[in-house]
C-alpha cells in the first residue's frame, strides 16, 4: 500500500488518524485557544473551575481527536498537548 506504517492489529477499516489529548487542568488560564482552533472540535470549556478559577478545556469528542497537537502549539500556558496514537505506538504493548 502507498501509506506504510498502518499495519497495527485492529486497524479501523476507514483510514483515519487517531490521537489523544493530555490536559494539565491546574496550569490552564482559560484562554480557549485550544477549543476555538481544534480542527476536530474535540474540546470544550469545562463548566467546573480549576484551583485558580479558570475553566480548563475538557475532551468532549475523544474519538474525533486526530492527535495533530495544534492545541499544544497554541496553548500559551503549556497546559494541553495532543499525541498521535496507533500506527506504531502500540508496538511495545
Amino acid at each position: 500500500m502507498a501509506t506504510a506504517g498502518r499495519d497495527g492489529e485492529g486497524a479501523p477499516p476507514r483510514r483515519r488518524l487517531r490521537g489523544e489529548v493530555f490536559i494539565h487542568r491546574e496550569r490552564c488560564k482559560g484562554c480557549a485557544f485550544c477549543v476555538e482552533f481544534c480542527p476536530s472540535q474535540a474540546l470544550a470549556l469545562d463548566k467546573a473551575f480549576n484551583r485558580k478559577g479558570y475553566h480548563p478545556p475538557v475532551v468532549v469528542k475523544a474519538e474525533a481527536c486526530n492527535g495533530c497537537d495544534l492545541c499544544g502549539m497554541y496553548c500559551p500556558d503549556f497546559a494541553i498537548h495532543g499525541v498521535r496514537v496507533g500506527a506504531g505506538v502500540d508496538d511495545e504493548g
Binding site: K29, G30, P76, F78
Partner: peptide
C-alpha cells in the same frame, strides 16, 4: 503572562 497572551504560543513554536 496573562490569560490570552500570545507569548507562550511563540515559545511552543
Amino acid at each position: 503572562w496573562c490569560p490570552g497572551c500570545g507569548i507562550g504560543t511563540v515559545v511552543n513554536c
